[in-house]
Amino acid sequence: MTAADEGLSRALYETVTVLVCSAPLALDETRLLSAFRMLDAADRLMGIMADHDDDFLRRARADFADHRMLAMTDQAAFTDWMSRYVAGFAAQALRRTRAEGV
């Protein structure tokens, strides 16, 4: 295993740990915070993928960084932002799927 592979494996393992340790909070926190935990884990995964020089993911991470605090301060605004965030990912997924010719 190369050093890069080891680094990737470690980073993925850390994110797996985040997801597992977030699971019990879904029973004790609001649904909105559960959504936040999923987006936080997704952000960590995007961070792992940063080496791939993906402009969409780079902008997505910046978008999340700009809006993540809304989960604590303005839940309605966070929900609105999350809808737009998801729409952006869905549109991007469609573009990528078409580009791949599936």
């Binding site: 850390e14 740990t17 985040v18 340790c21 977030s22 909070l25 935990r37 936080d40």
Partner: peptide, 8 residues
């Protein structure tokens, strides 16, 4: 930072 999800 891995096992305490709120420790951001």
């Amino acid at each position: 930072r891995q096992v305490l999800p709120g420790f951001l």
